[in-house]
Design a protein around this nucleic acid. Sequence first.
DNA 1: AAAGCCTCCAACCGCAGGGAA
DNA 2: TTTCCCTGCGGTTGGAGGCTT
Length: 228
Amino acid sequence: MVRAPRFDKYGIKKGKWSEEEDNKLRAFVEKYGHRNWRQLPTLAGLSRCGKSCRLRWMNYLRPNMKSGNFTQEEEDVIVDIHNKLGNKWAIMAAKLPGRSDNDIKNYWHTRLKNRVPKDRTHDQVFKNEQIGSSKPNPTTGFRSNLEQLQQQEVAVLVAVLSSKSPSSSSTTEPSPCWSTGSNHDDADSTKIMPWFSEPSESFWNEPFLLDDDAIISSYDNILSPMWC
DNA sequence: AAAGCCTCCAACCGCAGGGAA
DNA sequence: TTTCCCTGCGGTTGGAGGCTT
């Protein structure tokens, strides 16, 4: 079900993550955070690119990640947002704590896509909007129609993000907003994520000390691009 | 039993936006 | 102002496992 592990020409591992790699990544991020995904794999002793580490963390290793089937409520949220905004998986993920954009995207493609009438999708709405206004307004033209639609999208987006998420009423689960880098500031991050403690200042100023000498020596010989 | 097909999802890839230099 | 780097997003793919014939 997943890609077989392999190494690219730079020695960067690709494919399925092992339990050991997961543990290394989880331990490192929980201890030091993830300010620099590009350097993180080197510091954490992983033969992965930063992008791969970020994806793994965001999709599976984050605290409070849910597994298993989507509830009817979650499904409704996905369909509703898709009708309004289209394939905005990150926005849907922000509304569904514990679900990643990848989860939602997969769920849409495998379960929901064929269930939702095509003429109700955002893309079709967008097309209809353009077809319906095939005679451009002599004073404003097509561009303003598009801008108007974009303004409507922004309004919907604001409404979606400002409304309560389905599970927030029944749980005390932290808001996923931290994961999108919005709607919070650093001062609040420890409240939102009790597990996320700001690393001590010395961490960012002092050289990182690893237990494994081999990793330290390899750090000096990084020739491959760390980001894919 | 086995071959072929289908489904699902973890992971990869490329692009765009924002910020720093 | 321009260029470069980093990050996040959305589309696509690889391939294991299940199903059908």
